[in-house]
Design a protein around this nucleic acid. Sequence first.
DNA 1: CTAGCTGCAAAGCCTTTGCATAAAT
DNA 2: ATTTATGCAAAGGCTTTGCAGCTAG
Lengths: 136, 136
Amino acid sequence: MSDLLERLRGRGWRMTSQRRVVAEVLDGDHVHLTADEVHARATQRLPEISRATVYNTLGELVSLGEVLEVATDGRAKRYDPNAHHPHQHLVCSNCGTIRDVRLSGNPLSNLPADERFGFVVAEVEVTYRGLCPDCA
Amino acid sequence: MSDLLERLRGRGWRMTSQRRVVAEVLDGDHVHLTADEVHARATQRLPEISRATVYNTLGELVSLGEVLEVATDGRAKRYDPNAHHPHQHLVCSNCGTIRDVRLSGNPLSNLPADERFGFVVAEVEVTYRGLCPDCA
DNA sequence: CTAGCTGCAAAGCCTTTGCATAAAT
DNA sequence: ATTTATGCAAAGGCTTTGCAGCTAG
């Protein structure tokens, strides 16, 4: 359990009950919820919260750099609150489950400047695809 | 220009004019088209081809392992015909352009067996995100 | 007070599906 | 002849948007 809410307050983020609930639902380790799952959990605490607000809030957290969007082929995007600790993902090709892993080296250093085709590279995303223990 | 069509014939893939056109449009280096772009280009050669057929065909090429799906956050999926030469992607966060790059080492070896959480890992996907020369 | 967030409902984009017709082997 | 692909149109999932009203600061 990290301090997502505290960080947001510290950045002067306007706080509302909806935003607080979204941030609370999202916070934690190995959390990779879809927008719909976030909405479902938020609804348990705040029955009137709308899908639009969940989407707005998630979009904002992503812009702020406090939450990462994880694109999984075909399925709905997932949201990862662990944006401040670089990590990689193990994704199950069957059920879509995601697990965080942490590698030793820095994958960015694998791409020398002279192979970047003029791109200004900001981040690297490493995804291991396969079957999770349950599906294998 | 590789020999996608030849490989497909060799595998006993039932050939139709629609499928041929899709495979032709897709073939080549540094090609990363969306389904809609494939349809647009295919339509130039074969005006009656339907979107459904393009989607069906793309899905089949992916199942056959001849084409890779590239998920880009939010935007439509892109299709990469270069499935037989392992490579990584440089993706522009602004315009979505994709470029292939080839690293020296094998990224899979970066994840030791004891950090796989019981997953049977089949492949690694490495994506470098940043701004392309035009957008930077 | 007032900038800006919320909820609703409608629309949007991308993709899939069902079924009758057409074509490949 | 038989099996499989095609096209159409409709539906589906996920996400965004417009706007009137509400709320935090």
